[in-house]
Simulated scan of single mutants.
Amino acid sequence: MDGGTGWIGRADALARLGVKTQTLYAYVSRGRITARPDPADPRRSQYASSDIERLIRGETAPHVEKAAARGEAELLTSLGAEADGRPHYRGHDVVTLAETATLEQTARLLWGAEGLQPFAELRPRVDLFTAGTIRSRVFATLARRAGEAGPRAGDDPAAMVAEAAVALNEAVDAASGPGPRSHFHQRLARGWKMVERDAHLLRRALVLCADGRMSAAILATRTAASGGACMAGAALAGLTTLGTAELMRRTQAATAFVVAARRDPQTRLDDGASTDDPRGPSLLAALSLPADLEAVRRRVEDDSGRAADLPLALALTARALDLPREAAVDLVLIGRLTGLLGHALDQRRSGSPIRARVRYVGPRPGAN
């Protein structure tokens, strides 16, 4: 039995497969069974029970071997998944969660720290970054945290969660500016000089943005964490590649579209910002759009035959609240930072292997 963890020891693996130790090792080396160090004893290994069951059923999982040959990576995560077309965080429906959860509660869920209160005693930093865009301030804050912590600041579970909480707390302060210790969404609302009654829209948006499908940002974060980077350093590695992630790219496109479409009704969104993802309708359901923005939404939905997706919903929300031009992108940045810190924690705890094969295709050595 794997005790619900998805991992079993060598003896159990050999018993299930009915093979010798050498064969088990061969399966691992060929990428057909994923192995990791045993958290209780790094000298021993554990094996993914799902891979073993697949082999028992006679499935060879050729996609794993082909992915390795292409230089792609296969990752194991316990954070986010989709079921029946709906996103989930650790088994919790995201849309339902966003109805009431704060970003702090979502962080504890994604970080596997629901029994902890890592944000309770945190205080503002005196030497806060206040110049530049929100993006540049958040990046500078994480870089400083990484420089202060150094590599492999510790593997104690509670200490790593505390480290992640400090990084997120300082990043939100960098985005919102100094002020009273309130919830993250309230601090952002204060920084944007929003009407207090509308702050719940930021809360909902941040929760909806916290995690998503596999992306280069997640791979970068987990690779850095696997290599020993601290929480802030691993998350920074992910944020620097976040611009290539679908959610960020489409949010940038949707922001530009909404601005243009308010001026010219003939403007059309070429990026297909409509989908069956329920996160967009969830955010817009909590907001009463002014007539011109409602018309923009309807045009997109009529053109596509689907409800507005999350990027368009974020762009419409930012404009309806009269937030800065890049506010929708900044919400993705802060929300996704929470999830990336979760991936860094998950990677350090699980030791999930990140395998990629590199083949040299340059000039023959010694030819020049």
Rank of each mutant, 00 (worst) to 15 (best):
T133A: 04
G227H: 06
R190Y: 13
D309P: 07
T255C: 04
Y27K: 06
R357V: 14
A174E: 00
C230V: 05
L219S: 08
V259A: 15
G228I: 13
Y47A: 02
G154C: 08
G85K: 15
V259L: 07
N169W: 13
A120C: 05
T223F: 07
V64G: 00
S215K: 04
A40T: 07
R348A: 08
D156F: 09
G18F: 11
S226W: 04
G6M: 03
A167N: 00
A69D: 01
D302G: 11
D12Q: 15
D211F: 04
R299F: 03
D198M: 09
Q266Y: 02
A15L: 05
D303K: 10
P151K: 11
A15Y: 08
A131N: 08
T5Y: 13
S350V: 10
Y360I: 15
G115W: 12
G71S: 13
E170W: 04
A131V: 09
C209D: 03
A174D: 01
T267Y: 09
R349V: 11
T34C: 05
I8T: 03
A318W: 03
T102L: 14
W7K: 02
R298C: 05
L242A: 05
L202M: 10
I354T: 08
E163A: 14
A254G: 08
D2Y: 03
L316N: 02
S288N: 09
D41N: 12
Y27W: 09
D84H: 14
A237Y: 01
G243C: 08
T338R: 00
A140Y: 02
R70E: 10
E148Y: 09
A328R: 01
A98W: 00
A26G: 11
R181P: 05
A189T: 03
A158Y: 14
A171G: 02
A273C: 10
K193G: 06
G31V: 01
T317P: 02
Y360V: 14
R197T: 15
P118V: 12
K193N: 15
G85E: 04
R364W: 12
A217Q: 11
Y89A: 01
E196Q: 15
D93A: 13
A254T: 06
V19A: 01
P157G: 15
T100N: 13
R262A: 13
H63I: 06
A327H: 14
A216C: 04
V329L: 09
D276W: 05
G177D: 04
S182E: 10
A285G: 15
P124A: 15
A315N: 11
C230G: 11
R319C: 01
L116D: 14
T34K: 07
Q117R: 12
